[in-house]
Design a protein around this nucleic acid. Structure first.
Length: 489
RNA sequence: GGCGGUAUCGUCUAGGGGACUAGGACACGGCCCUCUCAAGGCUGGAACACGGGUUCGAAUCCCGUUACCGCUACCA
């Protein structure tokens, strides 16, 4: 391990949104940088003008910010570096590690097709490298367009990958690849190496779909006389069907999960476990803990399959662990946009609100789940779930009579607190001959209070609603039951 | 086709020659808890791709086969 501070970068191309695979690559780069006190840089690879959009660039920023993966230094836009990229390519022309190629795209395509037809694998035959200096000069003078090709040397190119150990490629299998187009713009591998040198990147950590680019890039570093960074190639993420993750698999953008009510910390935790393991059966971790435990030794070589079920479970874990006050800022906007409350209202009775969150978060897997359960506590008019009504209020006259008694009992309570409620309602159950089946009271009451057959403990619900609202709901339920109308009428 | 990579329960993984009767987690089933739903606890089924080596001994090391993935552009 060198003693220079590590510099890593995440280099996405802005051609869509920030997808989960990219987010995970960013995360590992970030974790490594944090762990070893280095820098995590962001470079937008926008050299493909046709596909790059500002909107996608924004999406990348938004995604990384939401996840809390802050980058150091200013963002580098690859498109702004073409001059230097070209200068580097030209430098290779001068030092003899590259040469001019006058073959046209059409000629190349033709030869490639011919080779394919003959079932041969096509590889550039270096014919332009055999041109005499005079010939080259005369063509240049005549203004014949040319590309710059890298002259791949003899031998073998290998490196010690941080996740794969040693990987090596016989150079004979690498063709003399183009580094500069006829219009003078750099090809991907040229731009990447030129930029990574400029940015003084010490560890290139990226998807393993770049493994075959690596020997070419290493050759370029050497031709430019630059020190080699370390490389780490991360496995891909696949969908449930084992194929590369794509739109067909549903949500693949980080923002999709943001809108589904997934917590950034849970997303990160889940993504980290897809391709990395801290060992010791540790699963649920905070960002701090991940930084502490991160180690390239735990990196996986095998592609992982993205399982949304486990993500949800992970989110539930993080939800339970998070304090209500940390959760509030994340849930409040959703509550407001669902029209259930106003920010002012929630702020004015903050303790009550936090208690509500405490009650709901344990039975939620996403923040959206919390919102879905919150309505009965926040709005005046509840909606009666037809199924709950049908099941728990089967005998409507009898239920009306029961709820009347419950209402009376609750109104008579001296203190509006759980122990008193329980004592009173269980006593009522005894009197009515329910024995220890107090659920015969609790369930109909739950429907009366919330309209639902599912909720936090009944005494918690009563406390949250308060005496006035609770008794009012019971009265409303009695009226509804006695109106004789069918459920939902 | 060529080159490269990968291979442990359905899924994420632990494992780095003997501690393996292969551990944990998700999902699934059962039980407990219980006013419902969660959460939690206990519990069940479920895997070393195949074939050869090396070794006293292999999930672990080597070779081959198979399968899957990636690259194979004047794309990134």
């Amino acid at each position: 391990m060198s003693d220079v501070t590590p510099r890593l970068r995440f280099a996405p191309s802005p051609t869509g949104y920030l997808h989960v695979g990219g987010a995970r690559t960013a995360l590992f780069n970030w974790l490594y940088a944090k762990k070893f006190g280095g820098q995590f840089l962001l470079r937008i690879e926008d050299t493909d003008k046709a596909r790059s959009t500002d909107e996608s660039t924004r999406a990348i920023f938004d995604g990384l910010n939401w996840l809390g993966l802050r980058w150091d230094e200013t963002v580098v836009y690859q498109g702004a570096n073409v001059e230097r990229n070209r200068a580097d390519a030209l430098r290779m022309l001068e030092n003899g590690t590259a040469y001019r190629c006058f073959c046209t795209q059409a000629e190349l395509a033709e030869r490639r097709a011919a080779a394919e037809a003959a079932k041969d694998s096509f590889k550039y035959d270096r014919r332009c490298d055999r041109l005499s200096a005079e010939e080259v000069q005369s063509r240049v003078d005549a203004g014949v367009p040319f590309t710059v090709r890298f002259r791949v040397p003899e031998g073998t190119t290998s490196w010690d990958d941080l996740v794969h150990e040693t990987i090596s490629f016989p150079n004979k299998d690498i063709e003399d690849f183009i580094v500069l187009r006829t219009d003078g713009t750099p090809i991907y591998n040229m731009a990447v190496v030129s930029d990574d040198i400029e940015m003084r990147i010490t560890l290139v950590m990226r998807g393993d779909d770049h493994i075959s680019n690596t020997p070419k890039q290493i050759l370029l570093y050497r031709a430019l006389g630059a020190p080699l960074p370390q490389f780490a190639h991360l496995p891909m993420i696949h969908g449930l069907d084992g194929k590369k993750l794509s739109k067909r698999h549903g949500a693949t953008a980080v923002s999709d999960y943001q809108h589904l009510g997934i917590l950034p910390g849970a997303m990160l935790n889940f993504l980290a476990l897809l391709g990395w393991s801290p060992g010791h059966d540790i699963e649920v971790m905070s960002m701090e803990r991940m930084v502490e435990l991160f180690d390239t030794k735990g990196l996986q070589k095998k592609a992982a399959i993205f399982d949304p079920k486990k993500l949800e479970w992970m989110n539930g874990q993080h939800l339970s662990l998070m304090s209500a006050s940390d959760l509030a800022p994340l849930v409040t906007p959703a509550l407001v946009s669902a029209g259930l409350a106003t920010t002012e209202d929630l702020y004015s009775r903050r303790d009550w609100y936090l208690t509500l969150l405490e009650l709901l978060k344990v039975r939620s897997r996403t923040t959206d789940d919390i919102v879905r359960q919150a309505a009965p506590y926040l709005v005046d008019e509840i909606r009666y779930d037809p199924e709950a009504e049908a099941k728990q209020w089967k005998d409507r006259p009898a239920t009306a009579a029961l709820l009347r008694e419950v209402g009376t009992a609750l109104r008579d309570l001296r203190e509006w607190e759980p122990a008193a409620m329980e004592e009173s309602l269980r006593a009522l159950g005894e009197r009515l001959g329910f024995g220890d089946k107090a659920g015969k009271i609790f369930q109909p009451l739950r429907v009366a209070l919330t309209g639902l057959s599912v909720s936090p403990g009944i005494f918690d619900v009563l406390v949250m609603l308060g005496r006035d609202r609770s008794t009012a709901r019971i009265d409303a339920a009695v009226a509804r039951l006695e109106s004789g109308g069918p459920p939902g009428a």
